[in-house]
């Protein structure tokens, strides 16, 4: 499978490199901001009563590099679409390569890239911890693992849809539909929480505790979620990859 995996990464190399550069850029900004908060200009500014560092923005910024690398590593930079455009998949149908092998290569490549994203995020979190003085904790690992779980689910769905739709626009439409379907109940849940709360800082007082609660439920279930989503999307992708026309 080495040659086929090489093909996946080589064809997606520009996309992966760009994603990595973006990650490094956002990571640098985040680390410098945190460094500045401790011993730089921002620390002096935050002591000033006129300027206060927005805690919510800082929380988002801290996790942003991880989100950047995980979200971008979820897709394959259009390799699967080009497999259709260049007739590679038609050619595969004339070789002894089975549908199972073609899909296995796609999923293996994705798992490898997401594990890479996880390692990069872990390194970033450790460096951040060293700067801020917060030792790398189980809670940080838990956060990363939940992001990793979501990334695995999303990329499995992405591979399945790419194989089924063969076209970037069609995949985008379906993903938007899935997100819209998830967005509505999430917003209803958040608004209900906000309405029932007397907290002044909605983000720290309402949203974050709710996120923590969801994280505590999701973390032990993550291995199951990963296994089930990969297994279902893998089986469906094999079914969708019809080498035989009707």
């Amino acid at each position: 499978m080495k040659g086929l995996l090489f093909r996946e990464f080589y064809l997606g190399r520009k996309y992966y490199m760009m994603s990595l550069l973006m990650f490094l850029l956002v990571m640098t900004i985040s680390l410098l901001t945190n460094l500045s908060l401790i011993c730089g200009n921002l620390s002096r500014l935050s002591e000033d009563s006129i300027f206060q560092v927005n805690e919510n923005a800082l929380t988002i910024m801290t996790i942003l590099p991880c989100l950047v690398i995980f979200i971008s590593f979820c897709t394959d930079g259009g390799v699967t679409f080009s497999d259709y455009n260049t007739h590679w998949l038609k050619y595969c149908g004339t070789t002894p390569m089975s549908e199972k092998k073609i899909i296995t290569v796609k999923f293996t490549a994705k798992i490898i890239s997401l594990v890479t994203a996880f390692i990069f995020s872990l390194i970033y979190t450790v460096i951040l911890g060293a700067i801020t003085g917060d030792r790398f904790s189980f809670s940080a690992f838990k956060n990363l693992f939940i992001i990793f779980t979501f990334a695995v689910v999303f990329s499995s769905i992405f591979i399945m849809l790419s194989i089924d739709c063969k076209d970037k626009n069609a995949v985008t439409k379906r993903l938007v539909a899935i997100f819209a379907a998830l967005y509505v109940p999430t917003m209803i849940y958040v608004i209900t929480l906000m309405n029932n709360s007397a907290e002044e800082d909605i983000f720290q007082g309402v949203v974050m505790p709710a996120v923590d609660k969801i994280k505590n439920i999701l973390f032990p279930l993550s291995p199951v979620i990963i296994t089930v989503s990969v297994a279902v999307c893998y089986a469906m992708s094999i079914r969708f990859l019809k080498r035989r026309e009707n």
């Binding site: 093909r7 080589y10 064809l11 260049t86 007739h87 590679w88």
Partner: peptide, 10 residues
């Protein structure tokens, strides 16, 4: 086939 089935970046 009449068209090369390999990606032209290779």
């Amino acid at each position: 086939f009449d068209e090369l089935p390999f990606h032209d970046d290779l």
